[in-house]
């Protein structure tokens, strides 16, 4: 199966770019999603690289991201 390089397995956003490639050329490529910051390597199993195979309990809706709690909260400026 051709590794997924266009859709984020976790949030399904089509906001994916190449993160880096292997120091020994041609061994693997890593991609990152600029919406949810999920990253994966081309040599990993389809369970973490293929959007339909990614388990629903670990998926995230991009609309939820701005509403996640901030930890720690940003304090008021003095």
């Amino acid at each position: 199966m051709t590794p997924n390089t266009t859709v984020c397995p976790r949030c399904d956003a089509e906001n994916v770019r190449v993160l880096t490639t292997s120091p020994v050329p041609g061994r693997w490529t890593m991609h990152v999603c600029d919406t949810c910051v999920y990253s994966w390597r081309s040599t990993e199993p389809s369970s973490v690289t293929d959007p339909p195979a990614y388990p629903p309990e670990f998926k995230i809706d991009p609309a939820e991201i701005p509403h996640l709690p901030a930890t720690p909260a940003v304090p008021r400026r003095r």
Partner: peptide
Amino acid sequence: IDLFRLLPLFRLNTYDVGC
């Protein structure tokens, strides 16, 4: 700087968000 090339970073557990 590319930390991934400097060090063999890897995902620890299957559903960690990354390295």
